[in-house]
């Protein structure tokens, strides 16, 4: 990099130390940064603490139980009790059927804003999160239960 000084002479700025500094900083940032985009999913707990004070109790309380064979049982209790069993599809959770069942509940009882999700002991966390993702597409608040 050349800069012309006041008296007409070319002055060369030595960029080598600047490059050195930048290389060190880039190396440090590369070493310490994570390239995984980690996000947060909110979840509460449906037991173990006093129940929160709510102004209005929803018409039905919805609970979902994930089974070890990837089947799901959706239960609603309150004004009307209903139990829907969803069988696994190709050994996997049938997400479409789960979303449809929840959409039907939400349509019948629009004041439903939360669901309690529980699973059998052997169900892996990945499947729980998958189910939670499907549930949140219809009902935003998911409490973990089964305690």
């Amino acid at each position: 990099m050349h800069i012309e000084s006041g008296d007409g002479q070319d002055v060369e700025i030595n960029l080598a130390p600047v490059i050195d500094c930048l290389t060190v900083i880039v190396a440090f940032l590369l070493a310490s940064s994570s390239f995984l985009a980690i996000g947060i999913v909110d979840a509460g707990v449906a037991a173990g603490v006093p129940a929160p004070q709510v102004d209005k109790v929803p018409s039905v309380l919805v609970s979902i139980q994930l089974q070890a064979d990837s089947g799901v049982v959706v239960k609603s209790e309150g004004k009307a009790s209903q139990k829907t069993s969803i069988v696994a599809k190709d050994g996997q959770l049938d997400r479409e059927a789960l979303v449809k069942a929840l959409a039907d509940i939400k349509k019948a009882y629009p004041d439903v804003s939360g669901v309690t999700l529980a699973a059998d002991d052997t169900v892996p966390y990945e499947k729980v999160m998958g189910a939670m993702e499907s549930i949140r597409s219809q009902i935003p608040a998911v409490l973990l239960g089964g305690f």
């Binding site: 985009a37 980690i38 996000g39």
Partner: peptide
């Protein structure tokens, strides 16, 4: 939860 931690933030790959 029995020790007062009831607001769970589950870390996932976004």
């Amino acid at each position: 939860a029995v020790n007062g931690y009831t607001d769970f933030k589950l870390a996932v790959i976004d």
